[in-house]
Design a protein around this nucleic acid. Structure first.
Length: 590
DNA sequence: GCCGTTTTCGGCCCGACTGTTTTCAGTCG
């Protein structure tokens, strides 16, 4: 007999939904003034659930939830209550005691749970609009411990948040901050008083989006460097300015945090500022058990008080008995344990890539000829590329007809005879149609060197339909890879519903590759899915999706996402020489 | 609320900056 829960399987709440409930509960507990550690415990569990590829609801019903780090009996009971009844009684009670608007107030820049609570208790402020009205009437400055500056700050934050609407502060695409970040770094490096400088934070960890920029520098003249930084032309205003820290806001609304230490501590600061917060929390907990205290200046022996400043970042990890951990792994996802055991992955590098299997030309929506793209790829050290223009169904008049595709293959044969130092594969980016069909006939598919199949339509279909389309594509022996598997566009589109467990499992079973599309607004597969794909035995291919020569310069973003997914060169098919790569393809095994 | 090569109880990462204070609370990363 089947367990009861399988009857209503599709109605199980998703991980994101459960995580959100816990986040709201944590916010209320903070507002109530409960122990910060209790609040942190709920936040940690929410974060854990948000990153999990497995189903939290299913794990709960199968009694496996407490196996997750940070989940004990109390949180397990609340999740179980939510999965079984659709509500958490304690949270509903809190919701009926305080309007949810008080949580928005607590989220304001410059406010927090304590401030929000006082505004509610003393002024009955329960919304951003109420903050604005009270500030404008001068009622906030009348509170003990508040002043005109605090009031002005809250007013400004409330106005900003109201103008922005319900969405959280937008994160920037990594690819969009690359240039300003490099410019700021160069300005620091060019200053005579700066010894060393680096970009840290989520930028250095190569997260696909960043909230702000974190720069670090070493100098013996922090005041001079701080003043210089605050006076750079792109600075709109200086938000904070101390002896070790300068926070600026640029004209294009980027927050930039500069930290300064003496040269002997540069390694400590770089480690500290690279994060992530979760990694640092775990690293410090780990250190504490070994009698060491880690901060941005040194590693200190607690017993003796002896301090060890580190000019190099690797020395910080070495003092803790760990191998140096690549920044892309520093997310609190098991990297410290791996470093302790000497089991860190040897991450894939851009230089490992020999081929690019997803390239467009002016035959479809690319902007340059096949030959131009081939030469651009060769100039960037690639040995082979696949011309994979869109097939006919893409619409908008940019798809390549079946007859044109045959002619294109012929042109590619001629180019291969003529060009040295680069090999071209004739290919196609075919559409997985709404019914799961591939929009090229099998004989044409069979004649190509490589085929990537992507979903470009029917995004709103439920997960069952989407997965049925993928299954159909994966079962086609002439589909070599799935392109941008989730369909997400960062900051613009969530992507369609995707079951990565099934997709990666079936990809592994059929020998189909999964693409990491390197366009910095896609980065799809995302890191967590890439890691899961590796665990399930699927091969990954990192592709630029280049539409012009500069498109090849996107490859490092795909490599960054792959590294965040713990991928090594051996996990990435296009690190192979062409002949080896061909040997991996299903079509070559027929 | 969670957790354990010091612990099943007593800790929990650690420091900078600001504003409003005359010594610190709150926020932030």
């Amino acid at each position: 007999m089947k367990p009861d829960y399988e009857i209503g399987m599709t109605s199980l709440p998703g991980n994101g939904e459960i995580a959100q409930e816990l986040r709201v509960l944590a916010a209320y507990l903070a507002f109530e003034g409960q122990s910060i550690y209790r609040v942190l415990a709920y936040q940690k569990a929410a974060r854990e659930f948000g990153q999990l590829t497995d189903s939290v609801a299913l794990a709960t019903l199968e009694g496996r939830l407490t196996e997750l780090p940070g989940v004990g009996p109390a949180i397990e009971a609340k999740v179980r209550e939510y999965v079984e009844t659709g509500r958490i009684a304690q949270l509903e009670k809190l919701r009926s005691s305080y309007p949810e608007g008080v949580l928005e107030v607590a989220e304001l820049d410059g406010a927090g749970p304590k401030t929000a609570r006082r505004l509610w208790d003393e002024l009955r402020i329960d919304s951003l609009l109420a903050v604005k009205a009270a500030a404008e009437a001068g009622r906030i400055r009348a509170l003990k411990g508040m002043g005109a500056k605090s009031e002005a700050k809250l007013l400004s934050s409330a106005e900003t948040a109201l103008a922005r609407g319900p969405a959280p502060a937008p994160r920037r695409l990594l690819g969009h901050v690359e240039e300003p970040a490099r410019r700021l770094l160069q300005a620091l490096l060019d200053h005579p008083a700066v010894a060393q400088a680096e970009i840290a934070g989520s930028f250095r960890r190569r997260r696909s989006t960043v909230r702000d920029l974190d720069l670090v520098a070493s100098t013996d003249e922090p005041e001079t460097v701080g003043r210089f930084f605050g006076a750079l032309p792109l600075v709109a205003r200086v938000e904070q300015s101390g002896l070790t820290k300068v926070l600026i806001h640029t004209h294009n609304d980027l927050d930039v945090d500069l930290r300064l230490v003496p040269p002997a501590s540069f390694g400590n600061l770089l480690q500290h500022a690279t994060g992530s917060a979760q990694h640092n929390v775990e690293l410090r907990g780990f250190s504490q058990k070994r009698g060491l205290r880690v901060n941005e200046y040194n590693v200190e022996e607690v017993q003796t008080g002896k301090a060890h400043p580190c000019a190099e970042e690797a020395a910080v990890y070495e003092l803790l008995g760990l191998s140096w951990i690549p920044p892309e792994l520093r997310e609190g996802r098991g990297e410290i344990q791996a470093a302790l055991e000497g089991a860190l992955p040897n991450l894939v590098n851009r230089e490992d890539l020999r081929g690019d299997l997803h390239v467009h030309s002016d035959w479809s929506d690319g902007r340059r000829t096949i030959e131009d793209m081939a030469i651009a790829a060769r100039d960037r050290g690639l040995e082979y590329i696949c011309i994979s223009d869109h097939s006919k169904s893409i619409g908008m008049g940019i798809g390549v007809s079946d007859d044109d595709l045959r002619r294109q293959s012929e042109e590619i044969r001629l180019l291969n005879a003529r060009l040295d130092g680069i090999e071209l594969l004739a290919g196609s980016e075919v559409d997985i149609l709404a019914d799961g069909e591939i929009d090229l006939p099998d004989d044409l598919l069979a004649s190509l060197g490589f085929v990537v199949a992507s979903i470009h339509s029917g995004f709103q279909q439920p997960v069952e339909r989407i997965m049925a389309r993928f299954r159909s594509a994966l079962e086609n022996p002439f589909v070599d890879a799935i392109g941008h598997p989730s369909g997400r566009l960062l900051g613009r589109r969530e992507g369609y519903a995707l079951d990565i467990e099934e997709l990666a499992g079936t990809a592994a079973a059929t020998g189909t590759m999964l693409e990491i599309n390197a366009s910095y607004d896609r980065l799809d597969l995302r890191a967590a899915h890439a890691r899961r794909a590796k665990e399930l035995g699927a091969l990954v291919v990192i592709s630029s999706d280049a539409h012009s020569p500069r498109g090849f310069d996107l490859l490092p973003y795909g490599v960054g996402e792959a590294r965040r997914g713990w991928l090594e060169a051996k996990d990435v098919a296009n690190t192979r020489p062409l002949e080896d790569f061909r040997g991996l393809l299903r079509r070559s095994q027929r």
